[in-house]
Amino acid sequence: MSAPVLDVRSIEKRFGGVHAVADVSFSVAAGEMLALIGPNGAGKSTCFNLVNGQLRADGGEVRLAGRSLAGIAPRAIWRLGVGRTFQITATFASMTVRENVQMALISHHRTLWSFLSRAADKFRAEADALLAQVGMAEQAERPCGVLAYGDLKRLELAVALANDPKLLLMDEPTAGMAPKERTALMELTRGIVRARGLACLFTEHDMDVVFGQADRILVMNRGRLIAEGTAETVRNDPAVREVYLGAGTTSGGH
């Protein structure tokens, strides 16, 4: 088995007196979809931010393709190959769909500091190819402010893929979407992850998505990992049922 793309070892984070993340270790392999779930405030977001460089760990180590990410700024981590999508979509509202992707490509190809050329002419074909991958090619000319929510999510995915990442970090990728759209987006993601050999780490509250799309699931509570494994293992874990899943009456019987 090849080395994992993302390797997290015993990371720690404290905020004041609160132990937000305590001794958490996990890894994600190429082509793998790993879900991180847990109650609100369990430390999932903190964990995410430790990986993407927004926060600095108090202890432990995060490695991307064998390289330690300690002390590297978020922008530099992006250059090392980490694409991100956000819980609440973050796109450039004053640009068209294509221009959003072009912007990411301009940054990726390091042609930002050009003052006289026209940005709209840069990397058009490459942008259109990425949009085609997520099924957004026909909407390339539309202002992204008028897109339907599901389409914004797909645009975000195209933007996240623009730097040809090794690792995809998705924070509640399906929040606010309809059931079928959720599944469709994550199947799309899963196809791309498999085809490109990316590693994908995501958080999610929709149990249909988690149990249907993740290869492996991590469960956090109060800053610690309390369970890890396949859908079956996690679903039958009494501790997970108690702190997170409940009786399953409002989450489709999971």
Binding site: A90, S94, M103, I106, S107, W113
Partner: peptide, 22 residues
């Protein structure tokens, strides 16, 4: 220009702009 687009990107969504390395 790309610079001007980058500037607008930073205005539209700082979060996204930083996340694509701007």
């Amino acid at each position: 220009s790309p610079f001007g687009y980058g500037l607008r990107a930073a205005r539209d969504s700082e979060l996204r702009a930083e996340a694509i390395g701007l």
